[in-house]
Amino acid sequence: MNELYFTEEHNLFRESLQDFLQKEVVPHIDKWEETGKIDRFIWEKFGEMGFFGIAYPEEYGGMGLDFFYTVILLEELQKINSGGFAAAIWAHAYLAMTHLNAEGDTRIKSEYLAPSITGEKIGCLCITEPFGGSDVAGMRTTAVKEGDHYVLNGSKTFITNGVYSDYLVVAAKTAPELGGKGMSIFVVDRDTPGVSATKLDKLGWRASDTGEIAFDNVRIPVANLMGEENKGFGYIMQHFATERLIMGINAHARAEYAIDYALEYMKERTAFGQTIDRFQALRHKIAERKAEVEMSKTFNYAIAYRLDKGEYVVKEATMSKLTATKIADEVIYDCLQMLGGYGYMEEYPMARLLRDSRLGPIGGGTSDILREIIAKMIIDKKEYKVQTETKA
């Protein structure tokens, strides 16, 4: 089945990435999980290997490769068992950098996108607010134009890379009276006066720096507006399809990792004179869960193919995130159970995997919100259209 989407070049890339992760990342994961801070050197190593430039134009140092290279990167990041590290990487590469590439002008791409590809600069995307959650249109952060600057006030929360990043891609209301139609997108340097961040203590994703960010009369040059003023809501909606599919791919990959680990354990663990992979109840549970993961992966690959061809797959990507994250949680719960008491021990991978997976149905739009979005599309026949306007 993989031959439908993955060429020999894809497979070689996967092998190279696996080797890189085992040598350069895995030895540091436990420390980063404990400290909640990823050492800066690894960002530069990712940049040197070209991993941040997979999807971006060659003129800014990228490689302009197809989306299945991104699929490989996402899958392999899940299989080193640190949801926090994986999130930090893809939030930089596919949340912050996506806006730079799509809405940034030539200067912004040169000053922010190019060094993001090399790993010299790290970015974060700031949309969610303390009182807003999934209600993007209801955000309260404002950016008031004063001469050649905008003055930014408000706060954001649950921001991956929110503490240690170098720049922030921020959504704010430039015309609050217009509601969601009065929103704009800016790039803001971390060291701009008035920007402050507080690190949040989380159940999982412990290696990543998730932060709450405050903006107190932050003066942003007009030149740091990305795209057109008051078009920000459309830009955000445009990229939601990619974000949701990414989270769906992450989910099927970590579920697959959990099953593979459980099977290896079951082949070695004995009870009542035989290995536990011989007990019918356990065999059938694994068979059922493996079927669900394969179905999820096959669906995700098909949607990735369509996304790569330029289709706006917001409905299917929303379905991917909704179903794949639910399946992953259930698979990992059952796989932890297969390990018995050892599944509950921190020295085994399942405890961390279970905690990290629980963010899937929450982040990037809760499952409850996604169900309503899907209902609007299939029952109310609501259409979400791609927005293509960008700043010259």
Rank of each mutant, 00 (worst) to 15 (best):
F6I: 02
L12F: 07
S16R: 14
L17T: 05
Q18M: 10
L21M: 09
T35D: 07
K37G: 09
F41H: 09
G50T: 06
F52T: 13
G53D: 11
E58G: 10
G61N: 07
L65Q: 04
F67Q: 13
S82T: 02
I89N: 00
A91C: 07
Y94D: 13
E103L: 02
G104C: 02
T106A: 13
Y112H: 04
L113K: 09
P115D: 10
S116V: 00
I117W: 05
G119M: 03
C126G: 08
E129F: 06
F131I: 07
A137W: 00
R140F: 03
R140V: 06
T141A: 02
T141G: 02
T141M: 06
A143W: 04
V144M: 10
N153S: 01
S155A: 05
I159P: 01
G162M: 01
V170H: 00
V170C: 09
E177N: 13
L178P: 09
L178V: 13
K181Y: 04
I185E: 06
D189Y: 03
G194N: 03
T198M: 06
L200E: 03
S208F: 07
G211R: 11
A223E: 14
A223H: 12
N224D: 14
E229L: 13
F233Q: 14
A241N: 12
L245C: 14
L263I: 15
M266R: 06
K267W: 04
F272L: 10
R278C: 14
F279N: 04
K285W: 08
A287H: 14
M295T: 15
I303Q: 12
Y312W: 11
V314K: 01
K315F: 12
K326L: 06
I332Q: 02
I332M: 10
Q337V: 09
M338Y: 05
L339G: 04
M345L: 12
E347P: 08
P349A: 05
R352M: 00
S357R: 05
R358C: 06
I362P: 03
G364I: 07
D368N: 13
R371G: 14
A375H: 15
K376T: 15
Y384L: 15
Q387H: 15
